[in-house]
């Protein structure tokens, strides 16, 4: 049985002038997989991730995580927001250990867990700093460590590198890839960067610009960690770019027809 099942999912916004964002969408994610949702802006990928996170409810259909239908946010889903949403009034260690406050762990166990996360995210020595005092890369690592603190079943990444400039992007992709592989966790990531999706993922779900239709489920069959310089990597990037271009052209035509 798959860890995450998205079943015939439909999301409509508005009542008087309904806008269908996603229609009859279905896919599954196996335990331990890294799946990227890739598509142009406005294709509904962030809405989809938000529904997996439990922040929004589907209009129709369901999302099932490890046998339980998702009905709201919970610790079983770690979420990294596009702007990281670190609490600016809390230090690095308080941000990371925030979720542990609500667990039954003893103080000693909480401390051990925090130490483990600080170590994994290479944040030792920065525990007492506030988010504003951190670089973009460090903020991202705090956000991932915080999302992993309560050992969720799935980690949800909403364009975690969306606001990062090109020069920093590859470096931060490497750091993020290292962290999630080390944590050995199931990941669903939203992105609009083709190379990023090929580098990070085991599977890329390419979505159309309209109603979130899945154009193709591309399995990235490369040895881990994926080598950006190998010819196969380029082929995957080209293939997905072409898929997106066709989808874009199709949308343009349909808009012209309207």
């Amino acid at each position: 049985m798959a860890l995450l099942e998205v079943n015939n999912l439909t999301k409509v916004f508005g009542e008087e002038q309904p806008h269908v964002v996603l229609e009859n969408l279905s896919f599954t994610v196996e335990k331990g997989e890294f799946v990227s949702l890739l598509g142009p802006s406005g294709c509904g990928k962030t809405t989809l991730l938000s529904m997996i996170g439990g922040f929004q409810m589907p209009t129709e259909g369901s999302i099932v995580l490890d046998g339980d239908v998702i009905r709201g946010p919970s610790v079983s889903k770690g979420y990294v927001f596009q702007n990281y949403a670190l609490f600016p009034w809390m230090t690095v260690e308080k941000n990371i250990s925030y979720g542990l406050r609500f667990t039954d762990l003893s103080d000693k166990q909480k401390k051990e867990r925090l130490d483990y996360l600080l170590d994994m995210a290479h944040l030792k020595g920065h525990e007492k700093k506030y988010p504003i005092q951190l670089s973009g890369g460090m903020q991202q690592r705090v956000a991932v460590a915080r999302a992993l603190a309560c050992e969720p079943k799935v980690l949800l990444l909403d364009e975690p590198l969306g606001a990062v400039d090109f020069q920093m992007r590859e470096l931060m992709q490497n750091q993020l890839d290292e962290m999630v592989r080390f944590a050995d966790i199931t990941v669903v990531m939203v992105t609009h960067d083709v190379a990023e999706s090929v580098f990070m993922s085991d599977r890329v779900l390419v979505m159309s610009a309209e109603r979130g239709e899945i154009l193709e489920d591309v399995r990235i069959d490369l040895p881990s960690p994926h080598d950006r310089d190998c010819p196969e990597f380029e082929k995957y990037v080209e293939h997905i770019t072409l898929l997106l271009r066709h989808a874009f052209n199709r949308t343009e035509h349909s808009l012209d027809a309207v």
């Binding site: 922040f55 709201g72 979420y79 609500f102 915080r146 603190a149």
Partner: peptide, 10 residues
């Protein structure tokens, strides 16, 4: 998202 983050952490 601060509120959403807090909710997703329990």
């Amino acid at each position: 998202n601060y509120i959403n983050a807090a909710r997703s952490m329990g």
